[in-house]
């Protein structure tokens, strides 16, 4: 098993009623250190770190946002990035434990029911794209629209936080939806 540590600096308070694309909960402390147990192979782990780095690059509204990702010898039962066997059909999932409106623990799991790749590969899903999407949820960001629901812009499928994803694709460039929603929360 390997471990990934993420440090997050949050400086602004959130008024959830003003934020449309907000899941309704966030991490409480500012800054917050979220440490991850990650049970992947080396190249896959690097893809997870790359996903973290993309979010790390987004500044908070005051410009001080920082997420540092690195390996460390940390382990507990909180904040897992792991494989799972899903009976239902999502390819990736994030589950939260919420206490008083704040996230205290998040678990990201990728299903073993499909093929995974690092980068675009026919018939397989790109790990970084999927983990980056789930990390968006971990930060409290909702989908830009629900699949099957109205999608007002033709560009919605380009958002990292679009609810569906296809094989042989890479979707790791954060769009204005992804960035402004992050900045509206922190």
């Amino acid at each position: 098993m390997c471990w990934i540590t993420v440090g997050v600096s949050w400086t602004t308070a959130v008024n959830s009623s003003d934020i449309r694309n907000y899941l309704g909960f966030r991490w409480e402390t500012t800054p917050c250190i979220v440490m991850w147990n990650c049970d992947y192979e080396t190249d896959q782990r690097e893809a997870v770190r790359a996903a973290m780095s993309e979010w790390n690059g987004v500044a908070d509204t005051d410009g001080s946002g920082l997420v540092a990702s690195y390996l460390t010898n940390y382990v507990d039962s909180l904040n897992e990035v792991n494989w799972a066997y899903f009976k239902s059909s999502p390819i990736a999932r994030t589950r939260f434990n919420i206490v008083d409106g704040y996230i205290v623990d998040a678990t990201i799991s990728l299903t073993l029911m499909v093929d995974w790749s690092v980068g675009a590969t026919a018939g397989a899903y790109d790990i970084q794209s999927a983990v980056q999407h789930e990390l968006g949820h971990v930060l409290g960001i909702a989908h830009c629209h629900e699949s099957g629901g109205p999608c007002s812009l033709g560009s919605c499928p380009n958002n990292v936080m679009s609810p569906t994803f296809g094989t042989n694709q890479v979707r790791t460039t954060l769009t204005s939806y992804d960035i402004t929603t992050y900045q509206s929360i922190y």
Partner: peptide, 12 residues
């Protein structure tokens, strides 16, 4: 009761 929220990425 406590609540566990779950959000996912679905095949397109």
């Amino acid at each position: 009761k406590s609540t566990v929220y779950s959000y996912g990425l679905w095949p397109y």
